[in-house]
Nucleic acid binder design. Structure first.
Lengths: 288, 288
DNA sequence: GCACTTTGTGTAAACGTTTACAATGCTAAT
DNA sequence: ATTAGCATTGTAAACGTTTACACAAAGTGC
């Protein structure tokens, strides 16, 4: 060891990986759109991977660009990674075929496809939306909007939870109360005016960013939050703390999602769903 | 090629890297503290790396943890990466020795050590602070605070720019007007009260997060921004748009910093400093 | 002191490519 | 028909490890 140090010897990981037929690294495939929570998940992934002696390699898959998604998966397979993590990636059939044919384990992160046999770590979106809706109902709201969700898995799961909660509490939900979007600030800003004629007293935002968009649009129209309109966000990122009023939000444990996804993809038996919780701040009013 | 496809042949990148004595990948060493701009830089890095056929591997270096920094650099050297990018990393002597002894090119990103011979891509912090200070002076401010900077390279460069601007405009700057911190929201919140007895009319925040901290603390104390206190942020992240009032901020082009750092580390001759610009929003008042 | 187990040392093959070079086949010019 | 030049094909070494195995040395129990 002394001589090795003197000679400045440095092990060659590439040669090691070759002979071992497997690289101690985890590939994370990620959308180019940098959501403000993806780095929280990444930090969880990184931390756990570090503990387990795995490196992390990141592959961008563009912006819902199918070609780049295939490319990213292929790149991951060409190095013999010990696992592939797909971060908020909606796979198409080609993606799934590529993954299934490979011998590398893979796990979807922050997205649940609905198949038990495909590894996944995520919040339970149905439960999450149910939670948010029920929270508003308990605070006396009966006309509740839902803003900014998409048409993919996450969005539809949340709609289901919202509808179930309404139904379970004997409320009829107007389909027009559900407004699609893309989880962005801009979505929220744009959608507020569409809610005004509908007389909802509260809106669930598909993300914190949508919530802030709604909030700012409301302030511009001199609609007071929460006095005239209640808003609850989803995600619980730091932005909830810095708005006025601060945003009540269903908080996802992104760090834990990251940590657990590493365990899952490496074969440990961990629960698919990571619990969420409501953090009350100042954007919801109690109605009598 | 047809038969290769039939057989499901997939090239083995690891074997390629071994024989080529060089992996087509760039290692990015990054602090664990996920600043809201690091993913913008990363996205620039990723984009450019993709164009040049380089993969990106991310290595976390903990939180100003020297051991983990050495570890991360060593890990990068053990695979024969084509370049090492150090993202907002303050190196110690050991780090620099490790890097210099290796044959891999390295480049500091969003940090300028002050040595011409060490590759670096960053905003010109001196100029940036000068810009912010001069902007406030042109708006009639003479008592200008500076909040939240650290004692490392970036912080001291900014202080220099601030002091130069004051001096060049014949203003004396009270050393107490400079308050150290760590670029965080919490820093800003805490520091506001320290400024109150000093009668400054404007504060430059070391980051947008500090600016929001100052803003929220001011609102809590019923101090109106910008009427009673002007604030200018640094970074120009999306958070500037969503506060009330929106934050005037010196905007850094993080994406471009990322793009350029890839070019730089791969040997292209690109400029070290990426220009910044003031984006006027609503947090600065004109004083007569 | 013998057989046996344990520990240590040395050797060689393997991992899947690239690359340099030799050998072969072909084309075209003399 | 001969040969130089060129393209194509085949062969073998190399990259730096791990791992399996043979063999020697040392230790153990009877």
């Amino acid at each position: 060891m002394k001589i090795a140090k003197e000679l400045g010897y440095r092990k060659n990981t590439v040669a090691m990986d070759l002979v071992k037929q497997r690289a101690d690294e985890i590939a994370v495939i990620i959308n180019a759109t940098p959501t403000n929570f993806s780095n929280m998940i990444l930090s969880g992934i990184q931390q756990r991977a570090n503990e387990l002696g795995q490196r992390v390699i990141i592959l961008y898959a563009g912006n819902r660009n199918t070609d780049m998604q295939h490319q990213a998966i292929t790149t991951a397979l060409e190095r013999s990674v010990s696992g592939i993590l797909l971060l908020a990636i909606e796979p198409d059939e080609v993606d799934l075929d590529l993954l299934r044919e490979s011998r590398a384990p893979f796990c979807f992160v922050s997205l649940y496809l609905g198949y038990k046999q495909i590894l996944s770590i995520s919040s339970d979106n149905k439960k999450l939306a149910y939670q948010a809706t029920e929270y508003l109902i308990r605070h006396g709201h009966t006309q509740i909007g839902f803003a900014g969700i998409d048409d993919y898995h996450t969005g539809s799961q949340r709609v289901l939870g919202y509808q179930n909660a309404m139904r379970d509490h004997g409320l009829t939900s107007n389909p027009a109360w559900i407004k699609k979007g893309d989880y962005s600030y801009e979505s929220g800003r744009r959608l507020l005016s569409e809610f005004l004629p509908l007389d909802v007293t509260a809106i669930i935002a598909a993300s914190d960013m949508v919530a802030v968009g709604l909030l700012n649009a409301a302030q511009k129209k001199k609609i007071s939050v929460p006095d005239q309109l209640s808003i609850v966000g989803i995600d619980g990122t730091f932005i909830c703390e810095v708005t006025t009023p601060p945003l009540t939000s269903v908080t996802q444990d992104f760090h834990e999602i990251g940590v657990r996804s590493v365990d899952k993809v490496l074969g440990k038996d961990v629960k698919t769903f990571v619990p969420t919780k409501i953090v009350e701040r100042g954007s919801v009013r109690e109605i009598n």
